[in-house]
């Protein structure tokens, strides 16, 4: 069995250190928002998790195109890894958003354009996993998955742009948003620095997770090949 690559070990180590620093910054350094209080601090990891989710789905899009062009099975495994990680981090994004919404909007959930498109996006990619589990032939499964990952990506810009196009109560922190948005706030320099630090931290975590998930898929493939050889 191959041991973990040195570079991956280094990325893992950096991920842990960055996550510890980001947590300390959020919990102890960054100022508390004047109106919403402590719950506003959920924002730093809430947005970072959404960022990872969208980055992961973009990775699946690229892997899907790469698979259709090259027909290399590795790209199928990268696509699967991206979507699995994307689903996990979008789930964090949606749940933390709901927790933040409760005291600010006085509800856990509302069918606002951003919340609705984010929920649709999550379901679109959950269906990807169901589609895969329903196809036996590996080549056919990879081809269908690649096409699905490409088409499904339409839901990502739709979610990102929803608060910039439609009338919404969801605040737009970067760029201008609807003035009717509830819970909007201006960031102090310390808030901006913590926000961007969190984004960098989660990006490094994403790279680490993606690499680990692809290695897991590679191992799974080797086990499948062994099973086939033994059955012959």
């Amino acid at each position: 069995m191959k041991t973990q690559p040195r570079l991956l070990l280094i990325i893992d180590f950096i991920s842990v250190i960055l996550l510890i620093i980001a947590t300390i910054l959020v919990f102890f350094v960054v100022p508390t928002e004047a109106v919403m209080g402590l719950v506003q601090k959920v924002f730093y990891f809430h947005v970072a998790a959404g960022w990872v989710g969208m980055m992961a789905f973009f990775t699946a899009l690229v892997a899907g195109v790469a698979y259709l062009v090259t027909k290399q099975a590795r790209w199928d495994r990268v696509g699967l890894a991206g979507i699995e990680i994307g689903i996990v981090y979008m789930l964090i994004n949606i749940i933390t958003g709901s927790i933040w919404a409760r005291p600010i909007w006085n509800t856990w959930w509302t069918w606002d354009p951003r919340l609705t498109t984010a929920a649709i996006m999550e379901l679109v990619y959950a269906a990807y996993l169901m589609l895969r589990s329903g196809i036996e032939d590996p080549e056919r499964r990879a081809r269908f998955s690649a096409v699905y990952a490409i088409v499904g990506f339409v839901s990502v810009p739709m979610t990102f742009l929803s608060i910039r196009i439609f009338r919404t109560i969801h605040p737009v922190v970067v760029g201008s948003g609807d003035p009717a948005a509830t819970g909007a706030f201006d960031m102090t320099p310390a808030m901006s620095q913590t926000f961007f630090f969190s984004l960098i931290t989660f990006t490094v975590i994403f790279v680490s997770l993606l690499w680990h998930r692809v290695r897991l898929a590679d191992l799974s493939e080797r086990v499948e090949q062994l099973k086939i050889r033994l059955s012959q």
Binding site: T32, E33, A34, V35, M36, G37, L38, V39, Q40, K41, V42, F45, H46, T96, I99, W100, R102, P103
Partner: peptide
């Protein structure tokens, strides 16, 4: 500020 500590911890 509003007392939202519980939601912060839950998040």
């Amino acid at each position: 500020p509003a007392d939202t500590l519980v939601y912060f911890i839950a998040g």
